[in-house]
Design a protein around this nucleic acid. Structure first.
Length: 111
DNA sequence: CCCGTGACGGGGG
DNA sequence: CCCCCCGCCACGG
């Protein structure tokens, strides 16, 4: 067995899966929901590991700036942007337009 | 074992 | 308002 501390990673996956289509959230929001506000970086690291799992819509997670900082980790440079655009998310120069409106806060929505 | 880096965020100057 | 530094945690060299 290898799962013990993977608890954190697993939680990140769970929250990420619950992000509705056409909506996005930030690493910090997820971290906060997990009770690790200052460990937003770990959320990114967890999502990095989630690349092998296609069940995780990691493209719906961006930084607090609404910028697609993780696009470089996808198959193609614009894969992340394209996926979001297909969900109706308007993006300009790797930046989500009206990010605040489509922002999905797990703490608020998921409680 | 020590150091640097990273899909971040917040605070201070 | 912009720029810099610090904190957090894990992992590779």
């Amino acid at each position: 067995m290898v799962a013990e501390k993977d608890n954190f990673f697993e939680r990140v996956y769970q929250v990420t899966r619950k992000i509705p289509s056409g909506r996005v959230t930030s690493y910090g929001a997820i971290a906060k929901y997990l009770g690790a506000t200052k460990s937003a970086r770990m959320v990114g690291w967890a999502l990095n590991s989630s690349k092998k799992k296609e069940d995780i819509p990691a493209h719906r997670v961006v930084n607090r700036n609404g910028l697609l900082t993780g696009k470089s980790h996808f198959s193609g440079t614009f894969a992340m942007q394209q996926l979001l655009e297909e969900e109706g998310v308007q993006i300009s120069d790797s930046k989500i337009i009206d990010f605040k409106s489509i922002f999905w806060d797990p703490v608020k929505e998921l409680s």
